[in-house]
Computed example of a mutant assay.
Amino acid sequence: MTQLGLDLDLTTKRTRKREFLDEMRRVVPWLKLIALIEPHYPTGRTGRPPFPIATMLHIHFMQQWFGLSDPAMEEALYDVPLYRDFAGLDGGMTHLPDESTILRFRHLLEAHGLAAQMLALVNEILVEKGLMLKTGSVVDATLIPAPSSTKNNSGTRDPEMRQTQKSGNWYFGMKAHIGVDAESGLVHTVVGTAANVHDITEAHALLHGQETDVYADAGYQGIEKRCETGAVRWHIAMRPGKRKKLDLSDRLDAIYDQIERLKAGVRAKVEHPFRVLKRQFAYTKTRYRGLMKNTAQITTLFALSNLWMARRALRKA
């Protein structure tokens, strides 16, 4: 039997992962993000020189896209040539970033609140390109489960996470509240809370202040009575039980049902970022302990999801 040689060109196959990284290499505003981090990055006047910001930022984003922990990311850099190439580590590097280096970079972003600044920077670019309008918003929240096991160093569950009930089932974890552009479905605001915080209590924090109309599901019933929401017009879905009682043979009830259909068509835009977060980026469970760290990761993921959702328009621009 003839054996395969060892001089195969493994770069000719355009795998889905390679295509994805090539797409993101083109649409992520790397230079502007690097300029955002640079004032906070160590200069390395003594000891081993730090890795370039670009390298660490590429590694950090790969962690988010592929759901890798710090040790797993270090091992992946050794095992996967594609990851080294994306991070720019194949150009005569004598060593690779270890898990402690990757951890310190993530802590640097968390300590200076750079995840929220990255989202704001990405949105500024999208607004400049005419991809995000500011006349309407859609607000919603999704549950993010957290590990409920106590088999860890502290012997306890995450003290900042809480339990809540939804559709008869109990969940332990946090909530990601988002406000999205009603036209494009791109995320402009992210708030992280414990799972037992009601959606309506964070609704006012999800508005950017320039919208005139806001859409939400039935969980936000009564929000228009709260003074802190300002003068915007709220379009809240009818409660499912009440809608089931509509008699479509009655002309007035048929009009109400059609209005609900129109509102649902706008509200559906908020589900697109959640789909990218949970399906495209496979983010289905919190990775860290504490709301601050997990909110920072979720905010980064939504910034990257905006770029992914707008990638075709950005390439044309």
Rank of each mutant, 00 (worst) to 15 (best):
W30T: 01
R243C: 05
L109N: 01
I144D: 04
D22N: 07
G173K: 14
L207E: 02
G219F: 05
L262A: 12
M238V: 08
K245N: 04
V197E: 10
A116M: 04
R287E: 01
G290W: 06
A76P: 03
Y215A: 02
T300H: 06
A205D: 09
H60F: 13
E160F: 12
A264Q: 10
M93A: 03
F105K: 05
L262G: 07
E75N: 15
G67T: 06
W234Q: 06
T135S: 05
D257Y: 14
S69M: 12
R251Q: 05
S305P: 10
G92C: 04
M73P: 13
T101M: 02
C227N: 09
Q117G: 00
A35D: 02
D217G: 04
A282D: 15
A195N: 11
A231G: 14
T15S: 15
R48F: 00
V122N: 08
E99A: 14
T299S: 12
R226K: 13
E110T: 08
K293E: 00
L301K: 15
C227T: 09
F66E: 04
P240S: 11
S137Q: 11
P49F: 03
A115F: 12
V122W: 08
L131P: 04
L126S: 01
K175W: 13
D79M: 10
Q163A: 07
G230L: 10
D158P: 08
K316T: 07
V270E: 05
P29K: 09
T193L: 07
L96P: 08
Q64D: 07
W308L: 12
S305C: 09
M24Y: 15
E160T: 07
T2R: 13
A54L: 03
F61N: 07
K13D: 01
M238R: 14
L4H: 05
T94A: 04
K13I: 04
M62E: 06
L103D: 02
T300I: 00
E160V: 03
Q297N: 10
Q3Y: 14
G67W: 14
D85Y: 14
M238T: 12
L206R: 14
W170K: 14
A146W: 03
R104E: 05
G67R: 15
G209V: 03
C227D: 08
V138S: 09
R14I: 02
A54V: 00
T189S: 13
W30V: 01
I125F: 09
A231F: 15
D7Y: 12
P49T: 02
M161P: 08
N306P: 09
D257T: 02
